[in-house]
Design a protein around this nucleic acid. Structure first.
Lengths: 242, 242
DNA sequence: TTCGGATTCCAACTCATGTTAAGATTGATG
DNA sequence: CATCAATCTTAACATGAGTTGGAATCCGAA
């Protein structure tokens, strides 16, 4: 009688970690409180001290910070199977917001249960630690993206990364994916203005590199986009040997 | 007979973690290979698969990535007591360079020894995991810095962060610190051009907010700099309760 | 002490991106 | 199916930051 929510976590964990049968059972035995949320709801807010972690089963979430003068920067997007606030297990106070981008299915896991799991299954502990390290690796690449790439390369890089991560959890469909994101939100991901997002998107479409209709992004020329972005997938560590 | 190098690590760990006597002894028993390096030497390079971690005992190191077209972005600066490549314990391939900024005293600790320590002292394992999470929290703030703050605010934020981190390990002297960094390197930290670094530095000096002579940075008006930067120290998690 | 390379500083000019404002589309809702 | 709010699009204009090039300093090495 396993929480269906845990399936997403296992799918994700096993793409970049090796787990044995007992590890998997221990994960399936986790007490998980299921919950659905609408789009654009704050799951955990900056400054809070949560007592549980949030497992994303369906939908997209993002993490963001808002500067003193009201500008928002999105720090990461999360795909199903991830635990976007796993850091709260060891950092008691949230230093950013965790927000739903789309309607989401979420599973909340008490910190106590996770700590016990870590003690009893060192293998799982390593896997979870590793997940937080991959998280950090993605932050690093985002620093490069925002700090050193042109707006166009930045956007290309963003889409390629997202594609690869969605692909790993089986959420792409023939070279595309569904991501209901507004241009305002894209701007906050890339550290540029909304108007400029629009300009760059027009360019990429004009060049025949991608199409967007509704929430449907289709990467027509993945190779070209990767070149344009200077994309190197190493940092995603999508294989246990990396 | 403890490696003097381990002292730096303990100083750092105990500022944001609670360790008991046995934990401390276990750390002191770690086999550490001592080594000195000149300034601007690569310690571990992008793409390598190191078998040990590097403990910084004296000096400064930084981590950086270089884009396809040769632009460099510095991802983090490291102060004595930190283990800048602790992530390599679980991420086998380096996705960035680790480099000395100044002449450094380093201690190299085999991955095996660290893994054994983690198994035997879960408390230490948590502390080390936590350190990597703080690392990630700093990355997040750097994303905001580079993505959403003006060049001036960015630089102010950088100096304040550094001051706080150095203060925590007792490396500041009356409102200042010594950091032998060139304007080129500052530019790569902040994601701006060298010329612009110079302009902004002039401005900050003209405003009487800081002075620099040689490698000596003196923050004359810390409060004003913090306001200018919109600095909120939460993300540094410099206390075990945070 | 002198030399040469690295670093800092400065000014003129260019350009990528931001800002503001206004229509045009779209999509929910009654 | 009319309406309204949100989103997208486009244009005109403003500006922060990049680029180039060169002078002034600094500093270690001979």
């Amino acid at each position: 009688m396993m929480a269906p929510v845990a399936t997403a976590l296992l799918t994700k964990l096993t793409t970049s970690n090796v787990l044995d049968g007992e590890d998997i059972q221990a994960i399936q035995r986790l007490p998980i409180r299921f919950r659905e949320l609408d789009a654009r709801q704050i799951i955990v807010a900056d400054g809070e001290r949560p007592a549980e972690c949030c497992l994303l089963a369906e939908g997209f979430t993002f993490r963001s910070k808002t500067t003193f003068d009201g500008l928002r920067q999105i720090l990461s997007l999360h795909v199903p199977g991830e635990i976007p606030d796993l850091q709260s297990l060891h950092l008691k106070v949230m230093d950013h917001d965790l927000v739903t981008l789309t309607p989401c299915e979420l599973g909340f896991i008490p910190h106590d249960a996770l700590r016990q799991l870590n003690r009893e299954r060192p293998n799982v502990a390593s896997a979870l630690w590793r997940e937080t390290l991959i998280d950090a690796a993605i932050f690093r690449e985002w620093i490069v993206n925002v700090g050193r790439r042109s707006a166009t390369a930045r956007m290309a890089h963003f889409f390629i990364e997202l594609f690869r991560r969605l692909e790993a959890v089986g959420r792409t469909r023939d070279g595309g994916f569904e991501l209901p994101i507004t241009q305002v939100e894209l701007a906050d991901c890339l550290g540029i203005s909304t108007v400029h997002v629009n300009r760059v998107l027009q360019d990429l479409r004009k060049e025949g590199l991608l199409t967007v209709n509704r929430a449907n992004f289709h990467l027509l020329e993945r190779k070209k986009l990767e070149q344009l972005a200077g994309f190197d997938p190493t940092y995603l560590h999508q294989h246990p040997d990396l």
